[in-house]
Design a protein around this nucleic acid. Structure first.
Lengths: 198, 198
DNA sequence: ACCTGAACACCGTTCAAGT
DNA sequence: ACCTGAACACCGTTCAAGT
């Protein structure tokens, strides 16, 4: 049994590879992922993966895109019953923390992964990031404020800030960090930022 | 020429190893660092490094501690002539961004590096992080406010937020990111957070 | 006592060769 | 056409052996 197996279509192998990769990341983290492990889990050899993905970075970007989609979905459904933009943004922050904690390794993989040197993120990937910022921006637009302000800038600043708290909290860089403390920090950041915006 | 060279003391080898490591990180980033490269740059074999450092994580933590010390020094000198806490905190934010941009790879190494699984950061390392948060906390304590608030929580939230903007800005996760934009985002976060705190 | 050199168990990626 | 298997150029880490 060598070469030309056609047990599965390329599309099937692709899905098997992504599924196996996600499972490895969930269990052991991104650093435990390797082409050899993925291949052995799906019953193919490492070389096969390079017929389907450009390289490991390409594969990881596709996995991270799925995680970003899942996150987006969770965030959207979390604010379904929200009325005031303030409480919407707070809910978004809470849900972001909850998702990161619950899917720690998948979420971590998004930010642990770095493209080589000056390589830019591909546009199809960046779209997934922008959709997240957009959830906040939409709320800021309907924010009942007297002053004019740049909602895009504000959404980027606030949401990056929330993310920063999450990263440092979940990578042991904040003392005695736990989900409850992280939530308090996020609350503090959002509440005061929004109050300042008024 | 094998074994028992004693060309250098252990202390000298240690310093040579750290110097060489920093130079590799500055030139090529943390991912280009390897025991074999460090060893070859200082004229020893990889095994020698394990007489001096527990493992690669230990070595990287020592390098990152130096970077955190440098950063702390820069921040302290940046606010020497500051009077009002508001402008102090803004200056701290600016200087943080400037340092991260100027020392991109060294700064990145601090956050790119992850200890395995559930391993906690050693206390001697965490001290360096806390000293940074403390710079902000001190300013918040002398903040001219009527309301009472938890200055430790506020310092952690605000500074983690500033850091988040930096990370996303410098890892291409914010659109059209450049130093000027990052500074505007940091300004926005600090100004509005402080205004909200009042 | 100090350091080496080789070994072990891994990597990502490529590509000639097999079916 | 599809996939393999082996190769290339790397890893971190350990430790018997040499001086």
């Amino acid at each position: 049994m060598m070469a030309r197996r056609s047990d599965h279509s390329q599309e099937e192998i692709r899905e098997m590879a992504i599924k196996a990769s996600r499972s490895i990341i969930i269990r052991k983290g991104l650093s435990a992922l390797s082409a050899r492990k993925i291949a052995s889990e799906i019953g193919y050899t490492p070389g096969t993966l390079y017929l389907i993905f450009k390289n490991q970075d390409d594969l990881i970007l596709h996995i991270n895109a799925i995680t970003l989609q899942d996150l987006h979905k969770q965030l959207v459904s979390a604010i379904k019953r929200c009325r005031k933009p303030e409480s919407c943004i707070l809910k978004l922050g809470h849900e972001y923390v909850r998702f990161a904690v619950e899917n720690r390794y998948l979420w971590n993989a998004i930010f642990e992964h770095r493209l080589p040197d000056g390589q830019k993120l591909p546009g199809w990937f960046r779209v997934h990031i922008e959709r997240l910022y957009n959830l906040v921006e939409v709320q800021l637009e309907s924010f009942n404020n007297t002053k004019r302000f740049d909602t895009h800038l504000a959404a980027t600043a606030l949401w990056s800030g929330v993310h920063g708290i999450c990263v440092l909290g979940l990578t042991d860089k904040i003392e005695n960090s736990n989900e409850k403390l992280i939530q308090s920090l996020v609350d503090s950041l959002i509440n005061n930022y929004l109050a300042g915006l008024r």
